[in-house]
C-alpha cells in the first residue's frame, strides 16, 4: 500500500459512514413493507428524505459553528439559532399578518427568513459570543441564556398574534418528523446540497480558523470573512432544518462529537461530511427504532434531547475536571 499523503485529507473514514447510512435507509424503507407497496414506499421515502436532510444539516452546521466559536460544547441550537429562526418567522407574521405570509410562495418566504436569520445571528455573534471568546464557559452560558431569552421573546410575540395566525406559527415550533410538506422538502434538499458544497469549498479556511482567531490571522486568513461565510452557512442550515421539523437542540452536539472521535482529524473536508452522515444516521436509526420496533410515535426528538443533554453534561464536567 502506498504511504498516505499526510498533507491531504484522508476521506477513507467516510466510506463506512456512507455505507452505514445507506444500510439504514434501505432497512428503513424495506422493513415490514406490505401492500399497497407503492403508497407506503412513497410515504416512507418522504419521511426518509426529511430525516436525512435535517440530520445532515444539523450535523454539518454544528461542526462549522464549533470551529468558528473555538468551542466544542456549543451548538447552534444551544445558542438559540433555531429559536431565533422561529422568532423571525413569528415577527414576520406579526408585522405583515398571516394572510400576506400565506400569499408569498414558500421559496421566497424561506429565502427572506433565512436572510433575516443570517443578519441577526451575525450581529448577535459579534456582539455577545465573540467578545467572551477567551472565557469559554461564560460564552456558553451567555449562549444558553440567549436561547432562553429568544424562546421567551418568541412565545411573547406569539401571544400578540391572533389565534389563527398563532396556529400557523406554532406548527413550526415543535419538532416533528412525521408531517412534512413535499415542496418545502424539495427546497430544503436543494439548499442542503448547495450549502454542503459551499461548506466543502470553505473547508480549508475553516481548518485555518481552527487554529484560533489570532494565529489564523497571523498566517494570513481573512478571519472576519471566514466567520461571515461560515456563519451564513450555519444560519442557512439551521433555517432549513428548523423550517422542516422545528428546533432540535442537542442532535448536533452528538453528531459533531462522534465525528471528531471517529475521524480523528481536524480537516473540515472530512469532518463536515462525516458529521452530516452521522447526524442523518442518528435520526434515521432513532426513528426506525421508535416507530418500527417500539411502535412509539413522535417521541424521537425528546429522546435525542435527553441523550444529548447527558452528553453535554459529560463533556462539560470532563472539560472542567481537567
Amino acid at each position: 500500500m502506498p504511504l498516505r499523503d499526510v498533507h491531504m485529507p484522508d476521506r477513507r473514514r467516510l466510506i463506512p459512514l456512507a455505507l452505514m447510512l445507506t444500510g439504514l435507509a434501505a432497512l428503513f424503507l424495506a422493513w415490514n413493507l406490505k401492500a399497497p407497496v407503492e403508497f407506503i414506499l412513497t410515504l416512507r421515502v418522504g419521511k426518509l428524505a426529511s430525516l436525512v436532510v435535517v440530520g445532515a444539516a444539523i450535523g454539518a452546521a454544528t461542526v462549522i459553528f464549533q470551529t468558528l466559536t473555538e468551542n466544542r460544547l456549543l451548538t447552534p441550537g444551544i445558542v438559540g439559532f433555531d429559536a431565533l429562526f422561529v422568532f423571525i418567522q413569528t415577527a414576520l407574521v406579526l408585522l405583515f399578518g398571516g394572510s400576506v405570509q400565506a400569499a408569498i410562495p414558500p421559496l421566497l418566504q424561506f429565502i427572506a427568513e433565512a436572510a433575516c436569520l443570517v443578519a441577526v445571528s451575525l450581529a448577535l455573534f459579534t456582539l455577545l459570543l465573540r467578545r467572551g471568546a477567551g472565557d469559554i464557559l461564560r460564552m456558553v452560558l451567555t449562549g444558553v441564556i440567549l436561547g432562553i431569552f429568544l424562546r421567551g421573546l418568541t412565545s411573547f410575540a406569539q401571544r400578540l398574534l391572533d389565534p389563527s395566525e398563532f396556529a400557523i406559527v406554532q406548527q413550526a415550533s415543535i419538532a416533528s418528523f412525521t408531517a412534512v410538506n413535499s415542496q418545502v422538502l424539495t427546497i430544503a434538499g436543494v439548499t442542503l446540497i448547495l450549502a454542503l458544497g459551499a461548506a466543502l469549498w470553505l473547508a480549508p479556511s475553516l481548518d485555518a480558523a481552527g487554529l484560533g482567531r489570532q494565529t489564523a490571522r497571523g498566517i494570513g486568513l481573512d478571519h472576519d470573512k471566514v466567520v461571515l461565510a461560515g456563519l451564513s452557512l450555519v444560519a442557512l442550515l439551521v433555517a432549513l432544518s428548523t423550517a422542516l421539523v422545528g428546533p432540535v437542540t442537542f442532535l448536533g452536539l452528538i453528531a459533531a462529537s462522534l465525528a471528531y472521535r471517529f475521524c480523528g482529524t481536524w480537516r473540515h473536508a472530512v469532518l463536515i461530511p462525516a458529521a452530516a452522515l452521522i447526524g442523518a444516521a442518528i435520526l434515521l436509526a432513532g426513528q426506525f427504532m421508535f416507530e418500527r420496533l417500539l411502535g412509539l410515535q413522535s417521541s424521537l426528538s425528546v429522546v435525542v434531547e435527553f441523550l444529548g443533554g447527558l452528553l453535554f453534561l459529560f463533556l462539560l464536567l470532563r472539560r472542567s475536571a481537567r
Binding site: E305, L310, S320
Partner: peptide, 28 residues
C-alpha cells in the same frame, strides 16, 4: 459537589442541562 468551584459560570450551566434532562423526561 462534583462541579469544580473555581468557575462560577459552570454551575448554572450544569443546572440548566440537568433541568433540561428532567424536563425532557417529564415531556416524554
Amino acid at each position: 459537589r462534583h462541579v469544580p468551584r473555581r468557575d462560577p459560570v459552570l454551575l448554572p450551566l450544569v443546572g440548566l442541562i440537568y433541568g433540561g434532562i428532567l424536563g425532557a423526561a417529564a415531556l416524554w
